[in-house]
């Protein structure tokens, strides 16, 4: 191979590597539970994360005028209040169901732009007394 092709190839490979690894670094979204959030609050402030847990029963509230959906995400130990601006289909979303919200922490509350729900082939009946481990397992199956 001629040297000029080699130089060209190196430039292309370099640009590509920059594009890939630069892009990967910026676009990693951490996946955490409420308990993990409270262990390292500073780390997750004002960066995009995915928060997973169950929608706590009795906390789901939809305001038809502002289109704001409020609920509490829990892992059985810690709770995080979530505000979602409603740009989400309600499919497979409900109280006591696994949910993953993508967004940022703003002070005490989590502001979500995106609500991801499990498209599971089988319905998982809600049960009482979730432990963080079970929740972790459940939300790992939720995206």
């Amino acid at each position: 191979m001629k040297p000029k092709y080699l130089i060209g190839l190196t430039v292309v490979a370099g640009a590509l590597a920059y594009l890939i690894f630069g892009g990967l670094g910026q676009n990693l979204v951490y996946f955490i539970t409420p308990s993990e959030y409270y262990q390292q609050i500073d780390r997750y402030q004002s960066r995009t994360v995915r928060l997973g847990g169950l929608v706590k029963p009795g906390t789901l509230d939809y305001n038809p005028q502002t289109l704001e959906l409020r609920f509490v995400v829990t892992d059985g130990v810690k709770d995080v209040p979530v505000r979602s601006s409603g740009a989400t289909p309600p499919a497979l979303f409900g109280e006591n169901r696994g949910v993953v919200v993508e967004g940022r922490f703003q002070g005490e509350a989590f502001v979500s732009q995106n609500l991801l729900v499990k498209h599971s082939e089988t319905y998982q009946a809600p049960k009482e007394g979730w432990t963080p481990d079970e929740v972790r397992k459940l939300i790992e199956g939720t995206q």
Binding site: G23, L24, Q26, N27, L28, V29, Y30, F31, I32, T48, R50, E140, Q143
Partner: peptide, 9 residues
């Protein structure tokens, strides 16, 4: 750590 690579990447 549990992460996901978003569509922006």
């Amino acid at each position: 750590a549990k992460v996901s690579v978003g569509a922006p990447f």
